[in-house]
């Protein structure tokens, strides 16, 4: 019964992944593909500083987006789980997920309208008299990319944390307070450690996919805000150098996976160290 989806995933995911790994060891000379095994693409990525710079910036942006998204999302998940009446919880979750599923491209574009030189934020702030000149640090740079991505991935962070919070046995919190902890310390010593699996899931589910987004950096990043996904896209579509693009995609995937595994490992140690 499980075989149709399994076969589909193997055919459409495992096999293509194998293909780009193979591809990354080949080279492209204009229109002809040279299929001799070589590490030339990886050497080029290693030696040309632009690739390292792009990768570094991408990892930095993904890291910031993850941090911002998870920190902003946690109180919302906490509020819905602990302070909303059970019959209204699904309404709240529904409201949170709706924007996530509507017109991704246009949503990103509208952030340009909000953050732009004559945008909503700037005209608003000038009208109240808080600033005299439009703020320029919020469009066409890395900040703008981070704000927009944090918006796009918000529900992805809220849902896993919410699920973890829902699983917490509420009597544990009462017990902790009966034993003399304050509300504040109960949160840090009981609630937060128990919610950790959800936080970890949220971190991974935001961090890994953000590395693959090229729309937001293209529209919001300006010249200095391009990321590694833009380079992969350019190599494949504009420069017609698929092998180099493939190698770049693989390097990016390896970096993201390594950082994620390190994060999961450190988190396990931290949780074990506490108990």
């Amino acid at each position: 019964m499980v075989s149709p989806p399994l076969i589909y995933v193997l055919l459409m995911l495992a096999f293509p992944m194998g293909a780009i790994i193979l591809f990354s060891f080949w080279t492209q000379e204009f229109m002809t593909l040279d299929t001799t095994f070589t590490l030339a693409n990886y050497r080029e990525i290693w030696e040309k500083p632009i690739f390292a710079a792009l990768l570094q910036r991408s990892l930095f942006v993904s890291g910031c987006v993850t941090l911002v998204t998870v920190i902003l999302a946690f109180p919302v998940a906490y509020f819905v789980s602990f302070h909303v009446a059970p019959e209204r919880k699904s309404l709240w979750l529904f409201l949170i997920t709706i924007p996530f599923w509507t017109s991704y491209l246009i949503r990103v574009f509208l952030w340009k309208v909000i953050l732009g030189y004559n945008g909503v934020v700037n005209t608003g702030l000038i009208k109240i008299g808080l600033i005299d000149e439009p703020l320029t640090f919020i469009l066409y740079n890395v900040n703008a990319v981070i704000i927009t991505l944090a918006h796009a991935f918000a529900p992805f962070a809220i849902l896993p944390i919410f699920v973890a919070l829902e699983k917490i046995d509420r009597s544990l919190l009462e017990a902790s307070q009966d034993l003399g902890e304050s509300k504040f310390t109960t949160f840090f010593r009981v609630t937060l450690p128990l919610a950790m699996p959800g936080v970890v899931a949220a971190v991974l589910i935001v961090f890994i996919p953000t590395i693959g987004d090229y729309v937001t950096p293209e529209l919001m990043g300006g010249a200095g805000g391009k990321l590694v996904a833009n380079m992969i896209q350019t190599q494949f579509l504009a420069l017609n150098n698929a092998p180099l693009g493939a190698a770049l995609a693989i390097v990016a995937m390896i970096c993201v996976t390594a950082i994620s595994l390190l994060f999961v490992f450190l988190n396990r140690r931290w949780l074990r160290g506490r108990s």
Binding site: L13, F15, I20, G212, I232, A249, M253
Partner: peptide, 26 residues
């Protein structure tokens, strides 16, 4: 197996895109 089937949920979309592009075209 059930985990493997869920993997596309967390995979960067550009990876899915380029790997299928390579398979289809090349």
């Amino acid at each position: 197996i059930l985990g493997l089937v869920m993997i596309p949920l967390v995979l960067p979309e550009i990876i899915v895109a380029v790997s299928l592009l390579v398979v289809a075209v090349q």
